[in-house]
């Protein structure tokens, strides 16, 4: 990974909440868990494309607002028994600032 782009501060994201980053490849949803973990997923539920950024975050999962699928923030996979996956992206947190890789690809794309 060559370069990183700073996209904001950790505190810009509410705890157990989410914010959106617009990218040329579509919306990314950045989630912040109650232990200040930050995760980035493509903002589309694998079920019907619902905006995951509007879901309820608890532990390390988000529940899609449209039909209640539960998506694992670490892997992007739907929690059993649902099946599906949402591409995720590395996000770096340093000194309370958030960084996304630039000029690259989604490294953890399935």
């Amino acid at each position: 990974m060559s370069a990183w782009i700073e996209i904001g501060k950790l505190d810009d994201i509410p705890i157990r909440g989410s914010r959106i980053v617009e990218t040329p490849a579509g919306q990314l949803a950045l989630f912040r868990t109650s232990d200040d973990g930050v995760f980035a997923l493509v903002n589309r539920c694998p079920h019907r494309g619902g905006p995951l950024s509007e879901g309820l975050v608890s532990g390390k999962v988000v529940v899609c607002p449209l039909h209640g699928w539960t998506i694992d923030l670490e892997s992007g996979s739907a929690t059993a028994p649902d099946e599906g996956c949402t591409p995720r992206m590395t996000v770096r947190v340093e000194n309370g600032r958030l960084w996304l890789p630039s000029g690259g690809t989604f490294p953890h794309d399935p």
């Binding site: 904001g8 810009d12 994201i13 509410p14 914010r19 980053v21 617009e22």
Partner: peptide
């Protein structure tokens, strides 16, 4: 206010 705008726009 944060609910209604995106965190960042990346070109």
């Amino acid at each position: 206010a944060h609910e209604f705008k995106s965190l960042a726009v990346v070109e």
